[in-house]
């Protein structure tokens, strides 16, 4: 299990477009289970609608968890995506 936290910088938060891109990226790591946690709510990163329903805003701190498969590779890719897009 690999974990990291990230503080959202984007003024709009995780809106539909980046949520879609994030879920798409998470889906590409088929052998890993990737979760996203805000406060005490956790959703699978591939569950687009649930992910959006967290309504993650600018300044929110989210925790990403990766389990199984290429943990380190997936975590790096996801962190890079967050830094570039959110």
């Amino acid at each position: 299990m690999k974990q990291f936290t990230y503080e959202i910088q984007d003024p709009l938060g995780i809106h539909a477009r980046p949520a879609g891109m994030f879920a798409k990226l998470a889906k590409s790591f088929a052998d890993s289970t990737i979760t996203l946690t805000k406060n005490d709510q956790t959703v699978k990163a591939t569950q687009l609608m649930k992910l959006m329903s967290l309504a993650v805003k600018q300044g929110d701190v989210i925790t990403i968890g990766v389990e199984g498969g290429d943990e380190a590779g997936a975590a790096d890719a996801l962190e890079k995506f967050l830094k570039e897009n959110l």
Binding site: T46, L48, M49
Partner: peptide, 19 residues
Amino acid sequence: DEAAVLFETHAMFVEDDDY
């Protein structure tokens, strides 16, 4: 690209696990 991603997001809704 910006506008196109919206339709791609729609396509993901179609397959969304919970939905």
